[in-house]
Design a protein around this nucleic acid. Structure first.
Lengths: 121, 121
DNA sequence: CTAACGTAAAACCAAATGGTTGTAGAAAGC
DNA sequence: GCTTTCTACAACCATTTGGTTTTACGTTAG
């Protein structure tokens, strides 16, 4: 049942950093290696590498090896998915929810889980 | 110059948590107090209160005092702003950037800063 | 072959995050 | 008035985050 939650967490968390958003912008054409990207920021190579990893785990970016180097390419579809997550959130209070979730449950479980009511206290 | 960066950080960070996204969903009608919200989650009142604060600092939610209690209301416009931030990100690699930033600079500075190139190394 | 480059991964550190409990004040109910 | 309810805030704690440096390894260039 819990499917979208962690994915969405990773997605928005990855977007919640200016350097990472900038990496996304620069990597659309998929021509830049991690080192080339790293040269663009006032931090170590390792730090940029970590940012790329965060973007990768969020599905926002893919890496393609070309010989020595690793080319970073942003997945435009993943960014669209982020927008979709927001639109779905908005849809919740615009009444389109029922039809939405019907469609979604037909294809794959992408409806976010709702935290349990607390039983103790 | 740096205007959108921190705001966007806060915005996406606030969205990067399932409990907070759920609070957003529940608070559209603006009828629920912090305690009422807190009762819905398996964590302490203080924890939920902190989540509401995060949403508030991100501009996603406002609080309105009604006597003893504080009613939470999500600002649908703020969620639209989040979507706009993503659309702007996508616009970067779709050529609409130039016209976009022209329009934006005319109204208010909402263009995100770009981290400096590193000078040392 | 050897040197240089690009990447990966580990160890470490300070600061932020997400949770807890406890204390205190303001409003409402009895 | 007194008690209860709701809120706010502080102090504390464990984990995560975002950065560092160092070491190791594969690939390319001389």
């Amino acid at each position: 049942m819990v499917v979208e939650s962690d994915d969405t967490d990773r997605l928005f968390h990855a977007l919640a950093d200016g350097t990472r958003r900038d990496i996304l912008r620069r990597s659309v054409r998929g021509e830049l290696s991690v080192s080339q990207l790293a040269a663009a920021y006032p931090m170590s190579f390792a730090a940029v590498q970590k940012h790329v990893t965060v973007l990768e785990r969020a599905g926002l970016v893919t890496k393609e090896r070309r010989g020595k180097e690793q080319l970073v390419r942003t997945d435009p579809d993943a960014v669209r998915r982020a927008r979709t997550a927001l639109e779905q959130l908005e849809a919740t209070w615009r009444g389109r929810v029922d039809r939405m979730s019907q469609v979604l449950s037909r294809t794959s479980a992408t409806v976010e889980d709702t935290p349990n009511e607390r039983t103790d206290r």
